[in-house]
Protein backbone atom coordinates (compact mmCIF):
# COMPACT_ATOMS: atom_id res chain seq x y z
CA UNK A 1 0.00 0.00 0.00
CA UNK A 2 2.83 2.37 0.91
CA UNK A 3 5.19 1.42 -1.92
CA UNK A 4 3.84 2.37 -4.35
CA UNK A 5 1.13 4.33 -2.51
CA UNK A 6 -2.39 3.53 -3.69
CA UNK A 7 -4.91 6.13 -4.85
CA UNK A 8 -6.96 6.07 -1.67
CA UNK A 9 -3.93 6.63 0.54
CA UNK A 10 -2.85 9.61 -1.55
CA UNK A 11 -6.38 10.99 -1.38
CA UNK A 12 -6.42 10.62 2.44
CA UNK A 13 -3.05 12.36 2.72
CA UNK A 14 -4.31 15.12 0.42
CA UNK A 15 -7.46 15.72 2.49
CA UNK A 16 -5.43 15.67 5.73
CA UNK A 17 -2.93 18.24 4.47
CA UNK A 18 -5.64 20.45 2.93
CA UNK A 19 -7.67 20.46 6.15
CA UNK A 20 -4.64 21.02 8.41
CA UNK A 21 -3.20 23.75 6.18
CA UNK A 22 -6.39 25.79 5.91
CA UNK A 23 -7.36 25.41 9.58
CA UNK A 24 -3.85 26.44 10.65
CA UNK A 25 -3.79 29.45 8.31
CA UNK A 26 -7.25 30.66 9.37
CA UNK A 27 -6.53 30.10 13.08
CA UNK A 28 -3.27 32.01 12.82
CA UNK A 29 -4.85 34.86 10.86
CA UNK A 30 -7.39 35.25 13.65
CA UNK A 31 -5.28 34.18 16.61
CA UNK A 32 -1.89 35.86 16.11
CA UNK A 33 -3.14 39.47 15.86
CA UNK A 34 -5.54 38.88 18.76
CA UNK A 35 -2.80 37.24 20.81
CA UNK A 36 -0.44 40.12 20.05
CA UNK A 37 -3.06 42.70 21.04
CA UNK A 38 -4.02 40.89 24.25
CA UNK A 39 -0.37 40.36 25.15
CA UNK A 40 0.71 43.92 24.47
CA UNK A 41 -2.23 45.86 25.90
CA UNK A 42 -3.54 46.43 29.40
CA UNK A 43 -7.30 46.68 29.71
CA UNK A 44 -10.11 45.95 32.11
CA UNK A 45 -11.21 42.33 32.02
CA UNK A 46 -7.89 41.09 30.64
CA UNK A 47 -7.42 38.59 33.46
CA UNK A 48 -10.91 37.15 32.86
CA UNK A 49 -10.34 37.01 29.10
CA UNK A 50 -7.06 35.14 29.64
CA UNK A 51 -8.81 32.64 31.91
CA UNK A 52 -11.48 32.14 29.26
CA UNK A 53 -8.86 31.58 26.55
CA UNK A 54 -6.94 29.14 28.73
CA UNK A 55 -10.17 27.25 29.35
CA UNK A 56 -10.90 27.13 25.62
CA UNK A 57 -7.36 25.88 25.00
CA UNK A 58 -8.44 22.72 26.75
CA UNK A 59 -11.74 22.43 24.89
CA UNK A 60 -12.33 18.70 24.29
CA UNK A 61 -12.32 18.01 20.52
CA UNK A 62 -15.53 16.00 20.71
CA UNK A 63 -17.27 18.98 22.36
CA UNK A 64 -16.01 21.26 19.60
CA UNK A 65 -17.20 18.70 17.07
CA UNK A 66 -20.61 18.52 18.72
CA UNK A 67 -20.98 22.34 18.75
CA UNK A 68 -20.07 22.61 15.06
CA UNK A 69 -22.33 19.64 14.25
CA UNK A 70 -25.28 21.37 15.97
CA UNK A 71 -24.55 24.61 14.12
CA UNK A 72 -24.32 22.99 10.69
CA UNK A 73 -26.86 20.19 10.98
CA UNK A 74 -29.92 20.44 8.72
CA UNK A 75 -31.98 22.21 11.41
CA UNK A 76 -29.09 24.29 12.80
CA UNK A 77 -28.54 28.01 12.18
CA UNK A 78 -26.12 27.28 9.34
CA UNK A 79 -27.93 24.20 8.02
CA UNK A 80 -28.83 25.93 4.79
CA UNK A 81 -25.17 26.04 3.85
CA UNK A 82 -25.21 22.22 3.57
CA UNK A 83 -21.64 21.99 4.77
CA UNK A 84 -21.94 19.06 7.15
CA UNK A 85 -19.76 16.07 6.20
CA UNK A 86 -17.50 18.21 4.03
CA UNK A 87 -13.85 19.17 4.45
CA UNK A 88 -14.93 22.80 4.86
CA UNK A 89 -16.87 22.07 8.04
CA UNK A 90 -13.96 20.00 9.32
CA UNK A 91 -11.84 23.13 8.89
CA UNK A 92 -14.43 25.14 10.86
CA UNK A 93 -14.26 22.64 13.73
CA UNK A 94 -10.46 22.72 13.68
CA UNK A 95 -10.44 26.52 13.70
CA UNK A 96 -12.71 26.46 16.76
CA UNK A 97 -10.25 24.14 18.48
CA UNK A 98 -6.96 25.68 17.41
CA UNK A 99 -7.64 29.42 17.54
CA UNK A 100 -7.71 29.59 21.38
CA UNK A 101 -4.39 27.71 21.41
CA UNK A 102 -2.86 30.24 19.02
CA UNK A 103 -4.26 33.20 20.98
CA UNK A 104 -3.20 31.77 24.34
CA UNK A 105 0.34 30.81 23.35
CA UNK A 106 1.04 33.97 21.34
CA UNK A 107 -0.35 36.33 24.01
CA UNK A 108 1.73 34.61 26.70
CA UNK A 109 4.81 34.92 24.53
CA UNK A 110 4.14 38.58 23.71
CA UNK A 111 3.46 39.38 27.36
CA UNK A 112 6.67 37.89 28.69
CA UNK A 113 9.31 37.97 25.98
CA UNK A 114 8.19 41.16 24.27
CA UNK A 115 8.25 43.52 27.25
CA UNK A 116 11.32 45.44 26.03
CA UNK A 117 9.84 45.67 22.52
CA UNK A 118 6.59 47.04 23.90
CA UNK A 119 8.33 49.50 26.21
CA UNK A 120 10.54 50.77 23.40
CA UNK A 121 7.72 50.97 20.85
CA UNK A 122 5.37 52.78 23.22
CA UNK A 123 8.16 55.12 24.22
CA UNK A 124 8.54 55.99 20.54
CA UNK A 125 4.83 56.78 20.37
CA UNK A 126 3.86 53.81 18.18
CA UNK A 127 0.19 52.84 18.05
CA UNK A 128 -1.10 49.62 19.63
CA UNK A 129 -1.46 47.98 16.21
CA UNK A 130 2.07 48.99 15.17
CA UNK A 131 3.45 47.77 18.50
CA UNK A 132 1.66 44.43 18.06
CA UNK A 133 3.03 44.13 14.51
CA UNK A 134 6.55 44.84 15.80
CA UNK A 135 6.15 42.21 18.53
CA UNK A 136 5.17 39.65 15.90
CA UNK A 137 8.09 40.66 13.69
CA UNK A 138 10.62 40.56 16.53
CA UNK A 139 9.38 37.30 17.94
CA UNK A 140 8.67 35.51 14.71
CA UNK A 141 10.90 32.54 15.55
CA UNK A 142 8.94 31.87 18.72
CA UNK A 143 5.64 32.63 17.04
CA UNK A 144 6.55 30.16 14.32
CA UNK A 145 6.57 27.47 16.99
CA UNK A 146 3.03 28.58 17.86
CA UNK A 147 2.05 28.04 14.22
CA UNK A 148 3.71 24.62 14.26
CA UNK A 149 1.89 23.76 17.43
CA UNK A 150 -1.39 24.70 15.73
CA UNK A 151 -0.54 22.59 12.69
CA UNK A 152 0.48 19.68 14.91
CA UNK A 153 -2.78 19.85 16.81
CA UNK A 154 -4.74 20.07 13.57
CA UNK A 155 -3.09 17.14 11.82
CA UNK A 156 -3.34 14.91 14.91
CA UNK A 157 -6.96 15.70 15.78
CA UNK A 158 -9.55 12.95 15.45
CA UNK A 159 -12.64 13.59 17.63
CA UNK A 160 -14.07 16.74 16.07
CA UNK A 161 -13.29 15.85 12.44
CA UNK A 162 -14.80 12.44 12.94
CA UNK A 163 -18.10 13.93 14.18
CA UNK A 164 -18.49 16.72 11.60
CA UNK A 165 -16.72 14.99 8.69
CA UNK A 166 -18.22 11.56 9.13
CA UNK A 167 -15.04 9.76 8.00
CA UNK A 168 -16.52 9.28 4.52
CA UNK A 169 -14.33 7.30 2.12
CA UNK A 170 -12.94 9.34 -0.80
CA UNK A 171 -14.42 12.48 0.73
CA UNK A 172 -13.71 13.39 4.34
CA UNK A 173 -11.47 10.57 5.52
CA UNK A 174 -8.22 11.88 7.02
CA UNK A 175 -5.19 10.06 8.40
CA UNK A 176 -6.37 9.99 12.01
CA UNK A 177 -9.91 8.83 11.27
CA UNK A 178 -8.52 6.25 8.84
CA UNK A 179 -6.16 4.95 11.56
CA UNK A 180 -9.11 4.71 13.95
CA UNK A 181 -11.19 2.82 11.37
CA UNK A 182 -8.43 0.41 10.38
CA UNK A 183 -7.67 -0.30 14.06
CA UNK A 184 -11.35 -1.06 14.68
CA UNK A 185 -11.29 -3.42 11.70
CA UNK A 186 -8.25 -5.16 13.16
CA UNK A 187 -5.95 -4.09 10.31
CA UNK A 188 -3.17 -3.08 12.65
CA UNK A 189 -0.34 -3.14 10.14
CA UNK A 190 -2.20 -0.77 7.83
CA UNK A 191 -3.13 1.50 10.77
CA UNK A 192 0.51 1.48 11.86
CA UNK A 193 1.65 2.35 8.34
CA UNK A 194 -0.72 5.31 8.31
CA UNK A 195 0.65 6.36 11.69
CA UNK A 196 4.20 6.26 10.34
CA UNK A 197 3.20 8.43 7.38
CA UNK A 198 1.52 10.88 9.76
CA UNK A 199 4.71 11.10 11.81
CA UNK A 200 6.82 11.56 8.68
CA UNK A 201 4.58 14.42 7.52
CA UNK A 202 4.83 16.06 10.95
CA UNK A 203 8.62 15.62 10.89
CA UNK A 204 8.90 17.06 7.35
CA UNK A 205 6.81 20.11 8.29
CA UNK A 206 8.92 20.66 11.41
CA UNK A 207 12.16 20.33 9.49
CA UNK A 208 10.96 22.78 6.84
CA UNK A 209 9.82 25.24 9.50
CA UNK A 210 13.14 24.98 11.35
CA UNK A 211 14.98 25.64 8.10
CA UNK A 212 12.84 28.72 7.36
CA UNK A 213 13.30 30.07 10.90
CA UNK A 214 17.06 29.51 10.71
CA UNK A 215 17.23 31.26 7.34
CA UNK A 216 15.47 34.32 8.75
CA UNK A 217 16.83 34.25 12.30
CA UNK A 218 19.31 37.06 11.71
CA UNK A 219 17.15 38.98 9.29
Amino acid sequence: MLFPPDKELLQIIGVTLRMSFFSTVISCLIGLPLGALIGSKSFRGKAFLKKLIHTLMGLPPVVAGLIVYMLFTHYGPFGRLQMLFTVRVMVVAQVLLITPVVIGLSSSFIESASKPVIETARGLGFSGVRTAALCIREGRSSLFSVVLNAFGRSIAEVGAVSIVGGNIQWKTRVMTTAIMLETNKGKFSFALALGIILLLIAFAVNALASFIVKEHADG
Partner: peptide, 23 residues
Protein backbone atom coordinates in the same frame (compact mmCIF):
# COMPACT_ATOMS: atom_id res chain seq x y z
CA UNK B 1 3.81 64.83 21.95
CA UNK B 2 6.28 63.00 24.14
CA UNK B 3 9.00 60.42 23.66
CA UNK B 4 10.52 58.05 26.17
CA UNK B 5 13.78 56.15 26.06
CA UNK B 6 13.81 53.21 28.48
CA UNK B 7 16.83 52.30 30.56
CA UNK B 8 17.17 48.91 28.86
CA UNK B 9 17.96 49.71 25.25
CA UNK B 10 16.48 47.27 22.76
CA UNK B 11 17.92 46.31 19.38
CA UNK B 12 15.29 45.62 16.77
CA UNK B 13 16.08 43.18 13.97
CA UNK B 14 18.03 44.66 11.09
CA UNK B 15 20.89 47.12 10.77
CA UNK B 16 21.32 50.37 12.68
CA UNK B 17 19.87 52.53 9.92
CA UNK B 18 16.80 50.37 9.72
CA UNK B 19 16.38 50.57 13.49
CA UNK B 20 16.15 54.35 13.24
CA UNK B 21 13.94 54.27 10.16
CA UNK B 22 11.33 52.34 12.15
CA UNK B 23 10.24 55.79 13.32
Amino acid sequence: QKLYMPQQAYAFRGDLRRNIQLT
